[in-house]
């Protein structure tokens, strides 16, 4: 029981990291940013690469986060920004294309194989009678908790956070009140992308594996989270991440023989959408 809950928390944390960026982007631009998953994979792959060439973990992670953030911003400035007035399909198609391209590029650069993330984490393993949590799992929980708190403070207390929320409420109007919307959106991509990369790194560490297509499944899951969370609500996305992870973990534990876990995640979403189409914390949206 306890073990299942802790497993679910670790899993849920990985969803949080990737879902935050998706939710920010969806909330503001109403774009389904599929390529976000490409950044998640990039963060992990690049950090592993840097570690392999001998950089200490902290440097590798920092550098990878910075580059991932920039990559996210380039996707906005170089691509989405130019098609924002073309409805939702054009950016979506663009995003799918970018994601496919990114995965292929990673394959070219780093090969198609799974690679271990071999580093030493200076944290204890948690081991008791009925619970095992590796140091890497512990790291995931701690980092995610810190991220959630910082994100909350950022959104509720800072000028940037309030600007982002205003943009998310009414992008067209936010500019009329002095908000540089283009810059705010760029920041949303910087923040969201670095968090996705951090998520990729943490999952890479936890599973001790990274590979070019590691973003695919988590990204689909994160979309479930964005939907469950109510399309654009960060708080909703965080809560939905953990709910989805709990449901998944327990259903797999008791009925895992019936369906694979990802099918269960999507069935959950489909059922929820049928009965509560605005998501768990849905705002009414235009």
């Amino acid at each position: 029981m306890l073990q299942n809950i802790v497993n679910a928390l670790v899993l849920g944390s990985s969803y949080v990291m990737i879902a935050v960026g998706l939710t920010l982007v969806y909330g503001i631009l109403k774009i389904l940013h599929i390529a976000h998953a490409g950044i998640y994979a990039f963060g992990a792959l690049f950090a592993v690469y840097l570690c392999e060439i001998g950089l200490p973990l902290v440097f590798a992670v920092t550098l990878s986060l910075i580059l991932s953030a920039l990559l996210g911003m380039i996707i906005y400035k170089g691509f989405y920004k130019h098609v924002l007035d073309r409805g939702r399909i054009v950016p979506l198609v663009m995003s799918v294309g970018l994601f496919a391209t990114m995965e292929d590029l990673y394959r070219l650069m780093w090969g198609p194989y799974k690679r271990p993330f071999d580093v030493y984490i200076d944290l204890p393993d948690v081991m008791t009678m009925d619970l095992y949590l590796s140091s890497r799992g512990l790291l995931m929980l701690i980092v995610t908790a810190v991220v959630i708190v910082l994100l909350y403070l950022l959104l509720m207390r800072t000028k940037l956070g309030k600007s982002l929320r205003a943009c998310s409420n009414d992008l067209g109007l936010a500019g009329a009140f002095g908000i540089n919307t283009d810059r705010s959106v760029a920041f949303a991509f910087l923040i969201g992308s670095s968090l996705a990369a951090l998520g990729g790194i943490l999952v890479g560490l936890y599973d001790n594996t990274v590979y070019p297509t590691m973003g695919s499944v988590p990204s689909y899951k994160a979309f479930v989270v964005v939907v469950l969370g109510g399309f654009g609500s960060i708080r909703g996305a965080v809560v939905a991440s953990y709910i989805l992870a709990l449901v998944e973990t327990f259903v797999v534990y008791y009925f895992g023989f019936l369906l694979p876990r990802d099918a269960i995640a999507f069935l959950t979403m489909i059922l929820l959408l049928m009965f509560k189409p605005e998501g768990l914390f849905g705002k009414v949206r235009r």
Partner: peptide, 15 residues
């Protein structure tokens, strides 16, 4: 700005 409070609406405009 619907999901923000009255005071937050004003704060945004007075930034």
């Amino acid at each position: 700005f619907a999901d923000m409070t009255v005071i937050e609406n004003l704060e945004v405009a007075a930034m």
